[in-house]
Amino acid sequence: MRCEYFDAGVCRSCTLLPQPYPEQVDAQQRHVRTVLGDPAGVTWLPTVTSAEAGFRNKAKMVVAGTVEAPTLGILDGHGHGVDLQGCPLYPPSLSVAFAPLAAFVTRAGLTPYDVPTRTGELKHLLVTASPDGELMIRFVLRSTEALARIRKHLPSLRAALPHLVVASVNVQPVHAAVLEGDREVLLTERETLRMLVNGLDLHLRPRSFFQTNTEVAAALYRQAVAWADETQVTSAWDLYCGVGGFALHLARPGREVVGVETSAEAVASAQMTARDAGLPGTRFLAGDATSFALAAGDVPDLVVVNPPRRGLGEPLSRWLEASGVPRVLYSSCHAGSLARDLAHMPSLRPVRAQVLDMFPHTLHHEVLTLLERT
Rank of each mutant, 00 (worst) to 15 (best):
C11T: 12
L363I: 09
M272V: 06
A343N: 08
L370S: 03
S156H: 09
C241N: 11
V63E: 04
E145S: 02
A322I: 10
R205W: 01
L279K: 03
W319A: 12
R222M: 05
V171N: 11
V328G: 05
V48P: 05
W237A: 12
L179T: 14
H80C: 00
Y113R: 04
L312E: 14
H203A: 15
C241S: 15
V328P: 06
R283V: 01
A102R: 13
V127T: 14
P131S: 06
L371E: 08
C11S: 10
G54V: 03
A353C: 04
V305R: 08
D38I: 10
P360I: 07
A59M: 03
V197K: 03
A266P: 09
W44L: 06
L279E: 02
R318C: 13
P162G: 03
A335C: 07
G281E: 06
A322S: 15
V62N: 06
E366T: 13
A335S: 12
D114A: 06
V257N: 05
D26W: 07
R12Y: 15
E180P: 10
G242K: 12
Q172Y: 04
P326L: 14
G79A: 12
A251C: 05
W44Q: 06
A295D: 14
E256M: 12
S331R: 03
P22M: 09
L186Y: 04
V197A: 04
K123C: 14
D76L: 01
M1H: 13
G181V: 09
N213T: 07
R142Y: 02
G65K: 08
A228Y: 00
S130M: 10
G259I: 11
L200R: 06
V96T: 15
A270E: 12
N198C: 02
D341R: 07
G181M: 09
V243H: 05
P46H: 04
R158S: 02
R327Q: 09
R327V: 00
D276F: 11
P91A: 04
V305H: 10
E52D: 07
M272I: 04
T117S: 10
R30E: 15
P162R: 01
G278R: 02
G133K: 07
P39M: 07
A177K: 05
D38M: 11
T119M: 01
E265M: 01
Y90T: 01
R194F: 05
L179A: 11
F292M: 03
I137E: 00
V42Y: 00
V367K: 14
Q29H: 02
L16I: 08
A251M: 03
T66G: 15
L363M: 14
Y330P: 08
D201T: 03
G313D: 11
V140Q: 06
V367N: 15
A335D: 04
Y5T: 07
L193S: 08
A59H: 00
P39R: 11
D238I: 12
P155V: 02
E215I: 00
P100I: 06
A353P: 05
P253V: 05
R151C: 07
R349H: 03
Q223E: 05
M195K: 06
L239C: 12
T212P: 02
